Simulated assay, not measured.
Amino acid sequence: MSVETMIAAVEKWIGTGEPNAIQAWYRERNGADYNGNFAWCDATITRAAVESGEYDAVCHGTDYAYTVAHAQRFKEAGEWTAMTAGIAKSGIRRGDVIFFDWAGSSSIGAIDHVGIVTSVSADHRYVYTVEGNTANICARRVRTVEEIAGFGRPKYKSEPKPATGSTGSTSKRPQVSLSRLVKAFKTDPPKKGTLVSYAGVQPVEDALVAERLLAKGYADGHAGTATRSAYTLLQERYGFTGKDADGIPGSTSLKRLAAKHGFDVVA
Rank of each mutant, 00 (worst) to 15 (best):
P189R: 11
A215Y: 06
D206R: 11
K191L: 13
G150P: 10
G193Q: 06
R140T: 01
A184Q: 07
V176Q: 08
G109A: 15
K161I: 06
V182Y: 02
E146F: 03
Q202R: 12
E146P: 00
T187K: 14
S121I: 01
T118Y: 09
G200E: 10
Q202M: 14
P174G: 02
E131P: 10
G150A: 10
A184P: 07
S169T: 12
K191S: 13
T170P: 04
E131S: 13
G109P: 06
G200F: 08
S105R: 02
K161W: 09
I137S: 10
A135L: 10
L178R: 03
A110S: 15
H124C: 08
T134H: 09
L214Q: 04
P189V: 03
E131G: 07
G152V: 05
K183Y: 08
V209N: 04
D188G: 07
K157V: 00
L213S: 03
E159M: 05
R140W: 10
R173N: 06
L208K: 05
A149D: 14
G217P: 01
N136C: 03
V145M: 06
K192E: 11
H113E: 12
L181Q: 02
E205Y: 06
S197T: 15
V127L: 08
N133S: 13
A215Q: 12
D188M: 06
V209W: 11
S179N: 10
E147H: 12
Y198C: 07
V209M: 07
A184G: 06
G217Q: 07
V142N: 01
L213M: 14
V117M: 12
A122E: 15
V117C: 11
E147T: 12
A110I: 01
S158V: 05
V114K: 07
P162I: 01
K161G: 13
G109R: 07
A210W: 04
L208R: 05
V117H: 12
G132K: 03
A184K: 03
E146Y: 09
T129Q: 07
V145L: 03
Q202P: 00
R140D: 02
S177Q: 03
G200I: 02
K157T: 12
P160H: 04
D123S: 11
E146K: 14
Y128N: 12
P190T: 14
S121M: 05
L195M: 05
G193T: 01
T134A: 15
R153A: 07
G115Y: 11
R173S: 08
Q175Y: 00
E159T: 10
V201Q: 03
